[in-house]
Design a protein around this nucleic acid. Structure first.
Length: 434
RNA sequence: GCCGGGGUGGGGUAGGUGGUUAUCCUACGGGACUGUGGAUCCCGCGACUCGGGUUCGAAUCUCGGCCCCGGCCCCA
């Protein structure tokens, strides 16, 4: 029998799970304060959902399979497409904007590496309809605030806008397949390869110059002005620049985009995000200290729904790579509390007091207090040792002598102090303590 | 898909030029200790990643698989 777990998967034990739950709870809270509501979609989908727009070659990276009725299915590699599908079938006529968030695992058949697993978790959101620079700004604000609440340090939010390059290429009447190729090269950040390609397709001098400039543009607000000065009358590009400027201004209004003092924001026109359904604003968040797995978040505005044949509706979304986010927090030794299993341990001193112990235990549980009682018929000393090891904060000693006077002994495991408490007052007494 | 480093009780390790019963720490179970935990001592439990090869004999040498770690490619 094969008892090992499949390659690229992980088990999460108590401590790690507690930490993950804490981060999950924090993110949920932030997203909900921005009026997003949680949804859940299936772990597997029809294979075609992911091949329609991404092409057949992505099947290489999917956990796909046929079910017993020969249906072509796949474990989901991401959650944006399932959300778009869900929107198409249930929400097309819902009032806009629709704000949804999700948390769940995704699967990719890739070589496992640091910060990359075959089952991994994404925590993300989609805002469908009502897409404006202001909406984009709110989304970035939410991503930023999530990280602030988590106490993450040393991250950078890189913001770009695909409308600038796309507009430039359209104005230059570059043919579509070349446009795609250029986007891919920009995403890779390979200047040399881009140069060669532009030469190969006889790109005009001015466009080449601007493209080569854009790919390396990183910095503060001044970048947009610099670029604007170089663009004469290319309307599509100027529109995109205006939109970008409005986004940045709104970030300021939300109180997070202060580029002068806050170096965490970087305008980065070299972001392209490989996917062809991204259209306007794009952003990625990096934690440079993490090296190869530094990207912890990515997103942008897209028109996936149009590509699925729906009505045109502007949408924006992003997702945290939850595992990498955890990695970043742990890397900086961020203290994440890890509660023990029980606050109270009820320890019968002799077998005669076991029935009374169970009764007391249940009273505490009914009051919502996490309580454990010895079920192992162990000796009193062993019970205390065990209670100590699992980190119980208090132990209730149930002994015959005390019971004769209607008392139990409450022991504080941290200090060792103990006091006698009337059995009838246990619950209210304990509630005051924890 | 490519390159490199690894895999010894539950966790962490020693051994490695082939040779008795594989080291130590910790954890776990029991005891010393019949109403008081974290200490000490004793006893117990428990491992050479899997398969083939060389050999009288393999944890050790060799080949392959699996898995882990790091770096590329990729990352919709």
């Amino acid at each position: 029998m094969e008892l090992s777990k499949p390659r690229g998967t992980r088990d999460f034990l108590f401590e790690e799970m507690n930490q993950r739950k804490q981060v999950e709870a924090t993110l949920k809270k932030v997203f909900e304060t921005y009026a997003y509501q949680e949804i859940k979609t299936p772990l597997f989908e029809n294979l075609s959902l992911f091949t329609i727009k991404s092409g057949e070659q992505i099947v290489e990276q999917l956990y796909n399979f046929k079910d017993k009725n020969e249906r072509e299915l796949t474990l989901r590699p991401e959650i944006t497409a399932p959300v778009a599908r869900l929107y198409m079938s249930n929400m097309q006529k819902s009032p806009k904007p629709i704000k949804m968030y999700y948390y769940g695992s995704c699967f990719r058949y890739e070589r496992p590496q640091k910060g990359r697993y075959r089952q991994f978790w994404q925590f993300g959101c989609e805002l469908i309809g009502g897409k404006t620079p202001e909406a984009d700004a709110e989304i970035i604000t939410m991503a930023s605030q999530s990280l602030e609440k988590l106490g993450l340090e040393g991250y950078e939010i890189h913001i770009g806008h695909l409308g600038i390059v796309r507009g430039l290429l359209k104005e230059a009447q570059v043919e579509e397949s070349h446009q795609e190729q250029i986007m891919v090269l920009i995403d890779k950040g390979d200047v040399e390869e881009l140069q060669n390609f532009l030469k190969e397709v006889d790109m005009d001098y001015e466009t080449t110059n601007i493209l080569l400039m854009i790919i390396e543009m990183k910095g503060g607000c001044e970048i947009l002005d610099n670029l604007r000065a170089k663009i004469n009358d290319k309307k599509m590009v100027l529109d995109a620049l205006d939109e970008f400027s409005q986004l940045l201004k709104t970030l300021n209004d939300f109180g997070v985009g202060d580029f002068g003092r806050n170096t965490k924001f970087v305008i980065n026109l070299g972001i392209a995000r490989g996917l062809d359904y991204y259209s306007g604003m794009v952003f990625e968040i990096y934690v440079p200290k993490l090296g190869a797995q530094k990207q912890i978040c990515g997103g942008g505005s897209y028109n996936l729904i149009e590509n699925f044949g729906g009505e045109k509706v502007g949408s924006t979304g992003f997702a945290f790579g939850f595992d990498r986010l955890m990695g970043a927090l742990i890397h900086q030794n961020k203290e994440l509390k890890s509660d023990g299993a029980a606050n109270i341990f009820v320890a019968p001193i002799s077998n005669a007091t076991r029935p009374k112990s169970f009764e007391i235990t249940q009273k505490l549980r009914n009051a919502g207090i996490s309580t454990e009682v010895d079920l192992g018929r162990r000796k009193f000393k062993k019970i205390l040792t065990y209670a100590n090891h699992i980190g119980a904060r208090y132990v209730i000693l149930v002994g015959e002598k005390d019971l004769l006077e209607g008392n139990i002994t409450l022991k504080n495991m941290e200090t060792g102090d103990q006091e006698e408490i009337p059995v009838d007052n246990i619950v209210e007494h304990v509630l005051k303590l924890i």
